[in-house]
Simulated scan of single mutants.
Amino acid sequence: MSLAPRAVLVHRTTEYEELVARHGTHGQAAFFLASRGRDIAEVADRHRRTREALTEVAAAVPLTWRQARLERQDLDRFLFGPEDVVVVVGQDGLVANVAKYLTGQPVIGIDTDPGRNPAVLVRHRPRDAAALLASVPARAGRSDDLTMVEAVADDTQRLVALNEIYLGAAGHQTARYRLGLDGDRGAVEPQASSGVLVGTGTGATGWLRSVWQERGAGLPLPGPTEERLLWFVREAWPSPATGTSLVSGTLTDASRLHVTVESDRLIAFGDGMENDALQLTWGQTVRVGVADTRLRLVS
């Protein structure tokens, strides 16, 4: 007997909740903001809209389904099942945060603050939740399979991300490594830089785009479903021992960027989740390229 679908509602702590937790009460938080020329009403209003959206979406889950709520900070401790339908209630970035923990489960993005969010990934309003949830089990709803990026270390550590993977030093120290491309023995270069960024077409609306605008050098941005990535070395430093000739390029599903660590410790993390990073030590090699998994985003 198969399990009934489970709707997993993913959300995050609001700015208002963070303020009250830090200052103790609404009044103290309001005083703190007022003393700096800010009004807590705007933050409280966004909190109210977010909670109302979460309540409306929860009420739209079919009665025969199971239901779970999951806060962003608990993502790395939650076990998703194959029968799950993931409903992200919040911002675009929250969809990216959850993507790395999924293996093909459908994702519905619900925008809690229309007009403030770009709504690239949270494409729907709370009132649409009932119809969207009903369409998923029958596969009647249309979805996009978004390309993801992966980093695989030589000790089998693996990381996937929807927007981008950053590889560099924890903090602001210089990262030292040897960078090369699979299949091209001549293309290996020792480098010292602020790190390496590898991004997808979905990431082309965020951090990757900001680097591309400064350093695009004619490289076309990939589309969200295109099996192509862009990579950039950030602030490569020329010296007698390090070069700057390999600083940007394109990766397809048949190519990989490889980085061999020559620092005491480097990390690789995806989509801003630094608390869930690969830990890499001197001599280790990590390869970065198109992931074999996709994010199934209901459109």
Rank of each mutant, 00 (worst) to 15 (best):
I40R: 02
I40L: 14
I40Y: 02
A41D: 15
E42G: 05
E42A: 06
E42H: 06
E42T: 03
V43H: 11
V43E: 14
A44V: 13
D45F: 13
D45I: 10
D45S: 09
R46N: 06
R46M: 11
R46C: 13
H47F: 10
R49V: 15
R49I: 13
R49L: 12
T50P: 02
T50C: 04
R51C: 07
E52V: 12
E52C: 11
E52S: 11
A53W: 04
T55C: 03
T55M: 04
E56F: 01
E56C: 02
V57F: 11
V57Y: 03
A58N: 10
A58E: 13
V61W: 08
V61E: 07
V61I: 06
L63H: 12
T64Q: 14
T64D: 15
W65S: 09
R66H: 10
Q67F: 07
Q67P: 01
Q67G: 03
Q67A: 07
Q67Y: 00
A68D: 13
A68F: 02
A68K: 00
A68P: 00
R69W: 05
R69T: 12
L70G: 01
E71L: 15
E71P: 08
E71H: 11
Q73M: 11
Q73H: 09
D74K: 14
D74C: 03
D74G: 13
L75W: 08
L75E: 14
L75P: 10
R77G: 03
F78C: 04
L79M: 13
F80Y: 06
G81L: 11
G81Q: 11
G81K: 13
G81Y: 05
P82M: 07
P82K: 08
E83Q: 09
E83A: 10
E83K: 03
E83P: 04
D84N: 03
D84W: 03
V85T: 02
V85Y: 02
V86L: 12
V86H: 12
V87A: 08
V87H: 10
V88Q: 08
V88R: 15
V88C: 14
V89E: 01
G90V: 02
Q91D: 11
Q91G: 14
Q91Y: 03
Q91F: 00
Q91P: 09
D92K: 01
L94A: 02
V95S: 01
V95C: 05
A96N: 12
A96V: 05
A96M: 00
V98H: 05
V98P: 04
A99M: 11
A99D: 12
A99Q: 04
K100Y: 13
K100L: 04
K100T: 10
K100D: 15
Y101I: 11
Y101P: 13
L102D: 08
